[in-house]
Amino acid sequence: MKRVKQSVSLVFFAVLSLSVQAHPHSFITLTTDVVAQDGQMSGLKMRWVMDELTSADLLYDAGKAKPGDEVWKKLAAEVMANVLGQHYFTEFWHNGKKVKFDNLPTDYGLAREGHQAVLTFTLPLANPQTLAGQTYTFSTFDPTYYVDMRYENDGDVSLPASLKSTCKLAVHTPQPSDEMMSYALSLDKEDAPDEDMELGKQFAQKVTLTCQ
């Protein structure tokens, strides 16, 4: 499993040997479904589609394995361990305070779609959150910005049918300053941005969930 661990690290710690010497080095397209029942939100069901170059090592390790084969379970566990190590790469806020997550996802899996690897999992909140009359925000990003994680369309974040009449979602895409853009582009794969800068957060989309 040495190669598996190595390739998973390539995906989530972005030490890919790419020819493009600028941030970001890896791209993940996101879709998220709000998980809620009886007026309370319990988590986020996420789907991460990795770009073909990022996917290459994972799919190489999977070989010709069919869906459900043991190798997919092992790869999924390795990837998920790294995601958990970074707190799901997600921040969730309510009234200016971070909402805590459960330590383990309720379910997760890894699959192949063409030439891309797809990770799915449910991010559980440590405690269900009441929705009526409340506003929440959440963002998914790599703090270093080696991995660009984003929603391609506003509709890539969705609500269950039971909430569509009382809640609404909005995806806000930031517009970093020219100075911040130049700084990000100046970094190559061996450079690390100042941790206090939270570079990835400067480029992170913010989703707002507002309920009546």
Rank of each mutant, 00 (worst) to 15 (best):
T54E: 03
V118D: 03
W93R: 10
R112W: 07
Y108R: 06
R112Y: 07
V118N: 02
M46P: 00
K73V: 05
Q129P: 03
D69L: 02
F121A: 15
A81V: 04
V49R: 10
Y88R: 08
F92Q: 06
L44Y: 13
L53D: 04
D38K: 12
V99R: 07
G39W: 05
W93Q: 13
K98W: 01
E52Y: 08
M46T: 12
D107W: 05
V79R: 06
G43P: 04
R47S: 14
A76V: 01
P67N: 11
S55R: 03
G114M: 07
T130D: 11
T31R: 15
T54K: 01
L110F: 03
A81E: 15
Y60V: 11
D107F: 09
G133T: 13
E52F: 02
G68R: 10
K100Q: 13
T122S: 07
G133N: 10
Y88L: 05
G114R: 09
Q134V: 11
W72M: 09
Q116Y: 05
T137K: 07
R47H: 09
G109M: 05
L75G: 03
P67H: 12
P124I: 04
Y108G: 08
V99M: 10
D33C: 09
D61C: 15
G68C: 05
V79Q: 11
V79F: 06
G39Q: 03
G43S: 13
P67S: 12
T31E: 15
T32Q: 13
L59P: 01
D57N: 15
D61L: 14
A132W: 06
V118T: 08
L30F: 03
M50T: 04
W72A: 04
P105M: 06
K100L: 12
W48L: 10
T135D: 03
M41W: 04
T32R: 12
T137D: 08
K64Y: 13
H115W: 00
A62I: 09
D107K: 15
D69Y: 03
K98I: 04
T90A: 14
G68V: 02
T135E: 11
L75E: 10
K45L: 10
G133M: 10
A36Y: 00
D51E: 11
S42V: 11
K100N: 10
D57G: 15
D57P: 09
W72R: 05
L30G: 02
L30Q: 13
G96A: 11
Q129W: 04
V99N: 09
N95R: 12
T135F: 00
L84S: 14
L125W: 05
A126K: 15
H94Y: 06
F138E: 02
M50Q: 07
D51N: 12
T31P: 00
K98T: 11
N82H: 13
E70M: 11
L125M: 07
L44K: 12
P105H: 08
T29A: 14
A56P: 00
T54G: 09
G109S: 15
F121M: 12
E70I: 11
